[in-house]
Design a protein around this nucleic acid. Structure first.
Length: 177
DNA sequence: ATGCATGAGAA
DNA sequence: TCTCATGCATA
């Protein structure tokens, strides 16, 4: 018998504390169900919610750890909530004998055109952080100069600054802002 | 769990 | 060109 009536106004779900609480409950209940983050992401597709498809393990992980933007968290919450309800309901009520057999498919060495991820060494990363502290959005010229000084591709430097800015906007960090 | 990257859409 | 949501690759 909880008399918190914030359900009277459609979606108030932007409350950071609410999101934080939900994320934690979500993770605990997911684990209790014995489902992985990747499983959840894939299961979202079969949920048949308008405009909602599968999501990656990365995204589910970030949702649970609040390392997404507040808007992103808010948008994902109802979807993950829906999945959780369904998953727990299915647990109680078997509904049908769904004993999926083991998959005999294993495409180990099929497509090998994998994207290579460039790794920025620690010293260079420290320099970038120092530059960022002074100027989070350097001009194109400035970034070119930085790139040359650190011997990195200009595009790598550009993307690094973009990601660094985005990182500051994640819930987990913006609170301490 | 997180680093570097992509692509669609805003500015 | 940047932002934003998102993901592949990898620590």
């Amino acid at each position: 018998l909880h008399h918190h009536h914030h359900l009277l106004h459609g979606e108030p779900a932007s409350d950071p504390r609410e999101l934080e609480a939900f994320a934690e409950r979500f993770r605990q209940r997911r684990v209790k169900l014995g489902v992985t983050q990747a499983d959840v992401g894939a299961a979202l597709a079969s949920l048949n919610i308008a405009g909602v498809g599968a999501l990656s393990q990365s995204t589910i992980c970030r949702f649970e750890s609040l390392t997404l933007s507040r808007n992103n968290m808010t948008a994902l919450k109802p979807v993950l909530h829906a999945w959780l309800e369904e998953a727990e309901a299915a647990r109680r009520e078997p509904a049908g004998a769904e004993s999926a057999a083991g998959s005999p498919d294993d495409d180990d060495d099929a497509r090998r055109r994998r994207r290579r991820r460039t790794s920025i060494a620690a010293p260079e990363k420290r320099s970038l952080e120092a530059y960022f502290a002074i100027q989070p959005r350097p001009s194109s010229e400035k970034m070119a100069a930085i790139a040359q000084k650190l011997e990195l591709k200009k595009n790598v430097v550009r993307v690094w600054f973009c990601n660094q800015r985005q990182k500051q906007k994640r819930m987990k960090y913006s609170a301490a802002r």
